[in-house]
């Protein structure tokens, strides 16, 4: 097997997304992700000009992130960023599965032990809070290993969108 084939087989699959350079800060650039939606208008959804709590522009501003620039990007350019597919699965697991398991587990134990809705409700809320705490620890571990850091892959081609269809 050639080295090229080895790379193809061993390289982790990346989930790609589009982002736009909004600021340059020395060697780093700040990127604003383009929202992915079902309507295929990901490139235009964030530039409607509306600002304020809960608007698309506001949400996008909150999701800005810095990356080391090895491509010599300028403000306004669109780029493709990627995260490993297995990191995305681990992240969703840590974020949603652990708190859900805590909620349902605590609820099941309370229902079996007390059989009262009030006790079950209190136990479920406590389980949810504990699950969130465990999710925080799990996410911290993933983050410390660098699994969740997005990678700058390439400049986006003209008309390139985040939707595949």
């Amino acid at each position: 097997m050639s080295a090229e084939t080895d790379d193809l087989v061993l390289a982790p699959a990346l989930v790609e997304g589009m982002a736009r350079v909004v600021r340059r800060d020395g060697e780093r650039v700040w990127l604003e992700p383009e929202p992915r939606s079902g309507c295929g208008t990901c490139a235009s959804a964030g530039v409607c000009g509306a600002k304020g709590i809960g608007t698309t522009a506001n949400r996008l501003e909150a999701r800005r992130f810095p990356l080391h620039d090895h491509l010599g990007l300028t403000v306004g350019e669109r780029v493709v960023v990627g995260v490993p597919e297995n990191a995305l699965l681990k992240a969703t697991g840590a974020l949603y599965a652990i708190p859900l398991a805590g909620t349902l587990g605590a609820g099941a134990v309370a229902q079996w032990a007390a059989g009262s809705d009030g006790v079950t409700l209190a136990a479920m809320i406590a389980g949810l809070a504990l699950g969130m705490l465990a999710a925080r620890l799990g996410a911290g571990r993933l983050g410390a290993r660098g699994d969740l850091a997005p990678r700058l892959l390439r400049r986006a081609g003209p008309g390139e969108t985040c939707e595949r269809d």
């Binding site: 999701r63 995260v83 995305l88 996410a139």
Partner: peptide, 14 residues
């Protein structure tokens, strides 16, 4: 989610 893990929020918050 934003408080628990900003990187996870970047990936999944959308």
């Amino acid at each position: 989610v934003r408080k628990v893990s900003p990187p996870l929020f970047q990936m999944l918050g959308i």
